[in-house]
Design a protein around this nucleic acid. Structure first.
Lengths: 210, 210
DNA sequence: AATAAATCACTCATTTTGGGTGAGAGCAAA
DNA sequence: TTTGCTCTCACCCAAAATGAGTGATTTATT
């Protein structure tokens, strides 16, 4: 049967113009079928068991429950559905929240039609399509800021702290004395202008120091 | 002048066949010039101040100092050089180590010539090219394993622990009693078969539980 | 010579941690 | 309905960890 080779796509997008254009684009391809489209997550979730999509194109800035929360809820019940974010938002927080919530990819809305279709294909192949700027953000998230005020040793110590190690364990790992670890941590706290482990790690993750 | 628009590319790759094929490929493009190629990081680093490449194609499995360590050392002295990994290795550890060390992208060697050149262009545009499988690994690294033995609440508690919070702070954040936090943590330790924060976080990061 | 980085020492009060043992309430599946 | 899971809270206890203070020495690098 022909239908067996058609991938069922669902669209959640509150802007009608954009939504319609996505529907047309999806249906213009022989490989994909837009089986439904909604302007809220609530509506989408309600009909999910009937719609049975394989891929969902999801907007982030939605009325009612957000796209992020929508991803979380959908993945909880239907972990196999691939959710591809298509959003104008490219702020760190939104992007990483969406990925943590279970998105299979993240595209920004300036994407051209051909690339969007390619991304759907890539998702089917188990890939993780990302727009250029998103890929950059994601890769950068692994790297320490070049403007870190911390020395190499201090960074090492802070990384170990982040792994829940005690001063003693850190000392053993780095083959230095516990007092030295204490000294480094005191300097770290001073440089970051904090006075506890939790504050230091908070600042460190925000400023990509570790 | 014509040279102003040509991007200087350096290759570090120990396999002569592959290295030569990369050189040919790069030089077949009008936009790129392979200004040098080496079979070790040591040799590359030694001549880096003369070669002044804008992009380095870097292998991972090299004799002498590894590609990972090479990236670290080069980025330390020349943070502006983009280093694009081209490797047969696609194990989690290698990939994430390379990204953490400062790689601007990561391609696996089965990549076709056209895509490799495209990736170079993408790097120049400030992007972060990744092979499909690598992108998948990277995105997955943000997501919690579906086979986590922990409950939602336990996961929350463990995430807070990872941020260096004390039981008291966690209790405040989750609006529960400190004793409840202790109880959750005891259960977490039992489920993960550990008996300290450090061990729990170690296992959690290895098994993607947080 | 001066500065930064990394190393180590000792005191002190307060918190934190991990182990043990136990228990009640809500909920869902069997 | 009973069993099991989840989340919640309580109290005891000893050992360990933490943060603040106040130092010092050594090794590079500029």
């Amino acid at each position: 049967m022909l239908n067996k080779n058609i991938t069922r796509v669902l669209i959640v997008e509150d802007d009608e113009i954009i939504r319609e254009s996505f529907v047309s684009l999806i249906n213009s391809s022989e490989s994909f079928l837009c089986i439904a489209n909604y302007d809220t997550c609530e509506a989408a979730i309600k009909n999910l068991s009937n719609d049975t999509p394989q891929i969902i194109l999801m907007d982030i800035g939605l009325p009612g429950i957000s796209g992020i929360e929508g991803i979380r809820r959908i993945k909880k019940v239907y972990p196999k559905i691939d959710i591809l974010v298509v959003s104008v938002h490219d702020e760190d927080e939104k992007v990483f929240d969406a990925l943590c919530a279970g998105a299979s990819g993240y595209l920004t809305k300036n994407i051209n039609p051909e690339k969007l279709l390619n991304s759907l294909v890539e998702v089917l192949k188990g890939g993780a399509p990302m727009s250029t700027n998103i890929a950059k953000m994601v890769i950068r998230s692994f790297q320490i800021s070049s403007e870190s005020p911390l020395t190499n040793r201090e960074t090492e110590v802070l990384q170990q702290l982040a792994r829940g190690k005690s001063y003693t364990m850190i000392a053993d790992d780095l083959h230095i004395n516990k007092e030295t670890v204490r000294s480094h941590i005191k300097n770290i706290y001073q440089k970051l202008n904090v006075n506890s482990k939790a504050e230091a790690l908070d600042k460190a993750s925000k400023d990509r120091l570790i």
